[in-house]
Amino acid sequence: MADTNPIKQFEVHEVFPFEAFGLNLAFTNSSYFMMLTTGLTIVLFAVAMSSRALVPNRAQSVAEIIYGFVADMVRSTAGQEGLRFFPFVFTLFIFILVANMLGMFPYFPAPGAHSFTITSHLIVTVALAMLVWLTVIVYGVFKNGAKFLKIFVPSGVPIFILPFVTLIEIISFVSRPISHSVRLFANMLAGHILLKVFAGFIVMLAAGSASMGMGELPGYLAGVFPFAMTLGLTALEFLVAFLQAYVFAILTCIYLNDALHPGH
């Protein structure tokens, strides 16, 4: 019977063991997919934009649409000033998008022959979210100085409940990287588990009917139903993979907007 463990896909295993200063710095399948995501993005964009035609071919227009899409997103949420963060937001968006899409391959030329979704690991999404959060703080303080603290003090609040509101605002601000990272992580984790659980039912049905002495065929026939479910969920997962990259990027813009214009 094939392995039906739905969370085996999230295992990180070492490819090249490496240790330095007492730290385990092995090159893992997670590192492999991160490098692949970055490399693939660079190569695809370099190839797509290599002709630099005034009238774009298909690859170039895809690259231009992605560019325009992210630029519109930054402009509409963080204003014209926010465009200085365009490279940052674009990098985050494309990294998460490509990483999510690479995770959709069932088999992949990778260590272990299976694909791996790096965004289904909390540590990766937390690192990305903390990057955004610290950028907001550093840039907000650098640009506005003490005025940045205005985002904790909403205007028009009666003085006797102001301390409470300020405390709540601070907690709300600190909770941002958590909700920012958990959302991406949980979406990718839950979706991929669901996918593997339904796919596993097909194998289990076949094994079940074989163990009852009917052979595997009835089990595989019944397996049409979980297969249809898996098919539908795969389509949904592609939507989620794109949507979560979009949500992560747009929330980055909203948070950066606070750094650019505190007190709104």
């Binding site: 909700s179 958990v182 959302r183 979406n187």
Partner: peptide, 30 residues
């Protein structure tokens, strides 16, 4: 109309859930 992809109810629920969860967690830990 550009820049507005379809949002699924699942994504919406996840958004609200994580926002609320983050607030409670940070408050409790602090």
């Amino acid at each position: 109309p550009a820049g507005k992809p379809p949002s699924s109810a699942w994504a919406l629920g996840m958004r609200y859930g994580s926002e609320f969860f983050g607030g409670v967690l940070v408050g409790g830990v602090l």
